[in-house]
């Protein structure tokens, strides 16, 4: 376990939803597939660049995005192949999918690699127990040392309406420079593009998420507890990205200027989470500054990938 993870475990409330990247990092390092830090993984998978909020800043904000697309891509960007499935748990076909989910998750554990499942956050099914009556998955939630039990019958059962799992299958070798460059292109895409899964009247993404947060804070009509969780979550993401930009320095690719901007963003977010949630004036000021800094960061990224970005014409996300 690296010190970064220790810091997170000690500083977080237990209600904080565990991020996908955190779960993925646990899985890939435990399996010996990767030895990079979580910030590197956060950047290369593009997940750390995602910034989307519910306009009321409700608690779901950090995990309200297209898991299907984003998590497949997270793996694909780094050359990991995967299989995933998801849906609502109140539909008639759910029992068929739950049965298959348990089979796939157990098969993955048998291959020596945990599975990512949604259980009020992204947790890692590390082992299973068929001896105990109906059978159970044992998962780590990233907070407590002990594995928790989730019976097969309870998989995907709520209170959340969603069930989700992803198993990693194999990996191919990738060119680091290409992975990093792709992450910059995708970062620009995330900054400029609304996640089509989310109704725009209720959610905002990328640059627009800053405006949504400032609007919510100014109007006072937002979820206080949800806002704290959301700001904490993104503070971690921005910090990860600032570290990533430093570590991702490649020959012939001067990432220094972009890194400096992201460090400024991370710094501002550390002030944000240290500010009283009722002090909306100061929070708005900090978010405005962070918006400026991140806008500059994206400009710097554009300079780094100008040729590739131009070759993609009007669809920078399409590889």
């Amino acid at each position: 376990m690296n010190t970064d993870a220790l810091h997170i475990m000690s500083s977080r409330k237990s209600t904080y939803p565990r991020s996908y990247v955190d779960a993925m990092h646990t899985i890939l390092t435990k399996a010996g597939w990767m030895d990079c830090t979580r910030p590197m993984l956060s950047g290369m998978t593009v997940n750390g660049f995602r910034f989307s909020v519910n306009r009321r800043l409700s608690e779901e904000s950090p995990t309200a995005y297209n898991w299907h697309a984003e998590h497949f891509l997270a793996a694909d960007f780094i050359g990991v192949t995967c299989s995933s499935s998801m849906g609502f748990n109140f539909v008639p076909t759910f029992p068929l999918y739950r049965k298959q989910a348990i089979l796939d998750i157990k098969a993955s554990i048998d291959r020596g690699i945990g599975a990512i499942i949604w259980h009020e956050g992204f947790v890692v099914a590390e082992t299973y127990d068929d001896q105990d009556g109906e059978g159970a998955l044992l998962y780590s939630d990233g907070f407590s040392e002990q594995l928790q039990r989730l019976s097969y019958a309870a998989f995907g059962g709520g209170p959340s309406p969603y069930w989700y799992y992803q198993v990693m299958e194999s990996r191919i070798s990738m060119d680091d420079a290409a992975v990093i460059k792709e992450s910059f292109l995708q970062a620009i895409f995330k900054w400029e593009t609304h996640d089509l899964t989310l109704p725009e009247q209720d959610y905002a993404c990328g640059r627009a998420a800053y405006e949504a947060i400032i609007n919510a804070l100014e109007s006072g009509d937002y979820d206080r507890e949800g806002a704290k969780v959301t700001f904490d979550y993104y503070e971690e993401a921005k910090r990860d990205i600032s570290v990533y930009m430093r570590e991702a320095e490649l020959p012939h690719l001067a990432t220094g200027a972009a890194a400096a901007c992201y460090e400024q963003v991370a710094e501002l977010f550390s002030h944000i989470i240290g500010t009283d949630i009722e002090d909306s004036e100061r929070l708005c000021q900090l978010f405005r500054e962070a918006l400026q800094a991140e806008e500059q960061a994206i400009k710097q990224l554009r300079l780094l990938v100008r040729e590739e970005a131009d070759n993609r014409f009007h669809d920078i996300g399409l590889r």
Partner: peptide, 16 residues
């Protein structure tokens, strides 16, 4: 219509 009153985590996306 429960399916359409809850925001999904998997619907529309652009090709990437």
């Amino acid at each position: 219509d429960l399916k359409r009153s809850i925001v999904t985590r998997w619907s529309a996306h652009t090709a990437r």
